[in-house]
Computed example of a mutant assay.
Amino acid sequence: MHILITGSNGMLGHALTAVLSQQHKLTGLDLPDLDITNLSAVKSAVSFHQPDLIINAAAYTDVDGCETNVDHAFAVNALGPRNLAVVCNELNIPMVHISTDYVFDGTAASPYRETDKPNPRSVYGKSKLLGEQYVRELTNKHYIIRTSWLFGENGKNFVATMLRLAKERDEIGVVNDQTGSPTYTRDLANAISELIQQPAYGTYHITNSGTCTWYQFAREIFRQAGINKVRVKPITTEEINRPAPRPRYSVLDNYLWRLQGMRPLRQYKDALTDYLKSLTKEENQ
């Protein structure tokens, strides 16, 4: 299969490339080679490369930046997926679209299923939800994948940030009132690789197993990394005072993934172990 990946230079794009290149022919496109907000550019790129499937991993993921760059957020996160969906529908090409836990408001007391009603509170979440809606409405052959708290190689992420701060500070304040499921990009890419083998179209929640707060995640990162000299201080969301509201509880129930007969992704702690090993390997090369 020939797969075109948009946003191929991003963290998930790199993981998708590493995983899918083992079985498929790949074309990776990112800025400046492809601007998904430009419909004619999308049409030209797809016509030229003639893929059998498109994976949209392109997004404007600066959650706080979205609050002030509203037009840009909706252009990339909503109109971009719309453009891809239109072209996919015209050419009868399946599409994979990556979405987020931020489409929910975070007020639930149990994990969100795919059938639960979204209610985003941030511009980022609202723009991603509109992108989902365009994909559903404009093309039948789609996989919409909501995931959360991504970490992995080749990109900014919470794990890398904690490891960097540990070299700079003796104490780090980390939010302890937001709960989610950290997800390793390599594991997500493997799940996507499994899913696209069959026309099981629809919306899926796909995350690593297990839940934690950001504070608990930071403690686990330092435990596994053998960092003992840094004190991790639990703080509240209000103390951070970020521009964009965050979901307090955004655990995703991988319900339809399980119903489809797919194996649950491994525990996030085990995935973290492999990620830290990959970082050590990179440092030693």
Rank of each mutant, 00 (worst) to 15 (best):
V230G: 05
T237V: 10
I221A: 03
N190H: 05
L195V: 02
V232E: 00
Y201H: 12
A225G: 03
R248P: 07
V230F: 08
G226T: 12
C212A: 15
R186Q: 09
V232L: 15
G210W: 06
V251F: 06
I227S: 06
C212Y: 01
R219V: 13
T211C: 01
A189P: 10
T211Y: 01
N254K: 03
Q216T: 03
I221C: 04
L188P: 04
L195R: 02
A189E: 13
R246F: 07
Y255Q: 13
K229N: 15
Y255L: 12
I235V: 12
G180S: 14
Y201C: 11
Q178G: 05
E238M: 09
Q198S: 13
N241W: 02
T211G: 01
V251K: 06
G226Q: 10
I240T: 15
P182W: 10
Y184P: 05
P243D: 08
F217H: 11
Y204M: 04
N208W: 10
G226P: 10
P182D: 15
E238Q: 13
G180V: 00
Y249P: 08
R219H: 03
L195K: 04
F217C: 15
A244F: 04
T179Q: 09
Q224A: 09
T203I: 07
E238F: 11
I192F: 10
S250H: 06
K233Y: 05
S250K: 07
R258P: 02
G180P: 01
R248C: 05
D187W: 02
R246Q: 08
L259Y: 07
P247D: 01
D253R: 00
A218T: 05
R219M: 12
I206S: 01
A244L: 01
V232I: 10
C212S: 14
R231W: 00
N228I: 05
E194G: 00
G210A: 10
I240K: 13
T237K: 09
W257N: 06
G226Y: 10
V251T: 09
R242W: 06
L195I: 04
L195E: 03
Q260P: 00
A191Y: 08
A189C: 11
Q178S: 12
N241D: 10
C212D: 05
Y184T: 04
P234C: 00
R219N: 09
S193K: 04
V232G: 00
I206E: 00
L252E: 11
S193L: 01
T236P: 14
Y255R: 14
P182L: 09
R219Y: 01
I196M: 03
K229W: 15
I235E: 07
E220D: 03
T237R: 15
T183A: 13
L259S: 11
A191G: 08
V232Y: 00
I235K: 07
G210F: 08
P199I: 08
N228M: 07
Y204Q: 05
A200L: 12
P234K: 01
Q224G: 14
G226N: 12
S181I: 04
